[in-house]
Design a binder for these strands. Structure first.
Lengths: 187, 187
DNA sequence: GTCTATAGATTGATAGAC
DNA sequence: GTCTATCAATCTATAGAC
């Protein structure tokens, strides 16, 4: 594997468990097996690393949403797949979504990363809006009033559910927090 | 004002904007107007400071919930007051709930603080459970099935809504994310 | 209770050899 | 592309004078 990719993998794992301010070049060097100084060849500064990280993450995430859209037809089925994917990405409750991890370190982040963070949320909400619009029309999600509001609420719900699971170190917290939404899925 | 209190105030503000790993004794010293070394007289280590911080925060938060319970009779009115209080505590979107800020830095926190974090969530969910149970009985909140699930979902929702508002630096994101829940309030 | 002085470790980052 | 060596800055923390 490319050293650059290995560094991104290590940085993603580290920032999703410790936050942006909670990991260092020394941590990455240890994990990848090179020296601290060598990292600067691939990413001149930590800001460059953070930007590459959120960029790759957003790309992967959006691709996952496209895949779900292609595979599932009903709105409710898409929602179920979304919740499953989000849950699976938590590594048993040990890691957070990168967007959540970065949101806390916002003040330490370069402007460009904050912008990416914003775009990430925007595109996620846009995708969820279509999902709820569809679920309303095909009757596979019950009680949908305003799809846009539902989308924003859904994103907030999964991010908050993730925080609870992490604080308690118990993935079941995630399931409990999303179960009311899940019960509205009508397949 | 007591120096100790001033330090706690500074530490709360700092950790709620930068996270636990994002502030230092130097920051507090600058804000309070004493030297770094003097802080150790009041809080021997950063771990002691963190514990005192979450402890005070939890006490204040629980008192606020008691006040709401005393002032409002209907479940829906309590819920509205809860959302208002949570929103007001965000300082216009610049700060997060301490529990959210600490959840990210979990790995850096001493065991005792993690335990407090857990208790904080537990008591919050317990209070919300009673609220939804009441709202179901007095018909002031619509569509309540399982009060416990609703409580966990509500806590996740406000925490996630807060993250979105912070990431976008726009308090309106909070309002949008909670509006679907708010529309279920039937007074 | 606050100060100066200082310690030892760690931070992100750079220069230059190989 | 990776290394050694080194940098200045910052981190939490301690000792001891006042």
């Amino acid at each position: 594997m490319e050293t650059k990719t290995a560094l991104l993998n290590a940085a993603e794992r580290a920032s999703r468990t410790h936050g942006y301010d909670g990991f260092s070049y020394a941590d990455l060097a240890r994990e990848v097996g090179i020296r601290k100084a060598s990292i600067h060849h691939h990413f001149p500064g930590k800001a460059d690393l953070a930007l590459a990280l959120i960029n790759r993450y957003r790309g992967n995430f959006e691709q996952a949403l496209v895949d779900i859209s292609a595979k599932q037809n009903l709105g409710g089925a898409k929602l179920q797949a979304y919740l499953d994917a989000y849950r699976a990405g938590m590594s048993g409750g040990k890691t957070m979504c990168l967007a959540v991890a970065f949101s806390i370190g916002r003040e330490s982040l370069p402007e460009a990363v904050v912008k990416e963070l914003h775009t990430f949320h925007q595109s996620g909400i846009a995708w969820l809006s279509e999902l709820f619009e569809l679920g309303k029309q095909d009757n596979s999600i019950t009680g949908v009033s305003n799809p846009e509001f539902e989308a924003a609420a859904c994103l907030a719900l999964v991010e908050g559910a993730q925080l609870q699971a992490r604080a308690a170190d118990d993935l079941a917290r995630f399931d409990i927090a999303v179960s009311a939404l899940q019960q509205r899925i009508n397949l």
